[in-house]
Design a protein around this nucleic acid. Structure first.
Lengths: 154, 154
DNA sequence: TCTGAAATGTGTCGGGG
DNA sequence: CCCCGACACATTTCAGA
């Protein structure tokens, strides 16, 4: 497990909030110079702790107002099923899970009609249960590493 | 609905893949100069299409190997419940949904013991069903806007 | 809405503590 | 592991089309 000191923990919290913050500004906030920050960030990237940077896009504004959660009970949950799911561009996440279902899939859709198309694709693999998200009390957010005492040696 | 031209669609796909890409490099890839890119990106931000930028952090590497999905059936699903869930730092997303459950919660946890603590907190609000993610055929990913023909006037 | 050029700000690399 | 100074590079602004 990768152990963080307090500076790296704060760096990660800042970069999770604003992934485009400059090294200089990061340094100003935590009391380091830009080169020192750059080196720490580079090491976090090399270690795989920072996996990348992403712009967060509002899919609703782009015409995908429906967020659906589909649970699948696939009798034979093999690689073929996984790959078929991954090939669907509307799918933004898919997990294999414990319990009576085999997969949990999340997809962004344009219309209710698209739900049928999505289900038709996974239908062949097993029974499905679909929930539509009506609101998000906690929209997808980063963990607050400071609040969770992340990175402390256990 | 916000209508994208092809350039903005490609810009968003690039920024979803690498949120720290410089305006100059973005411009080189799509055939514009840096100032033109900067202006387009600024407008997308102002319009709320780009909601922000985030570093993607590997929580497993930081000691949170468990991703849990908890479905809650809360008889009275009011604001108080939402706020209690939102206050838990391990919760990375919570949705209200249609169907027999009221909420779907995702949380990152350190140990199986933490599952008990999490459930104890939401337990008071209703019955729970918990699934543990064993693998992710599709890890959380951005939508490919080009593949989905996003932003086209319908 | 874009380009091109000038000014400003930031990233990067060396040397040194 | 950090700071400082110097250079290279990116961003911003603005005039012009």
């Amino acid at each position: 497990m990768y152990v963080l000191d307090d500076i790296n923990r704060d760096l990660l919290d800042l970069l999770q909030t604003d992934g485009r913050m400059s090294f200089k500004e990061l340094g100003d906030r935590i009391g380091l110079t830009a080169p020192a920050v750059a080196e720490r960030v580079r090491k976090l990237e090399d270690a795989g702790v920072i996996k990348g940077y992403r712009a967060v896009v509002d899919y609703e504004a782009l015409g995908f107002p429906i967020l659906s959660i589909v649970r699948v009970k696939a009798p034979i949950a093999g690689r073929a099923v996984d790959e078929k799911i991954a090939a669907l561009p509307n799918v933004i996440e898919a997990n294999r899970v414990t319990g009576s279902d085999s997969h949990v899939i999340r997809a962004r859709l344009r219309t209710t009609r698209d739900i049928e198309d999505l289900l038709a694709d996974v239908w062949e693999d097993g029974e499905t249960i679909t929930n539509l998200v009506t609101s998000s009390p906690v929209p997808r957010r980063p963990m607050n590493l400071k609040a969770t005492n992340a990175g402390r040696a256990s």
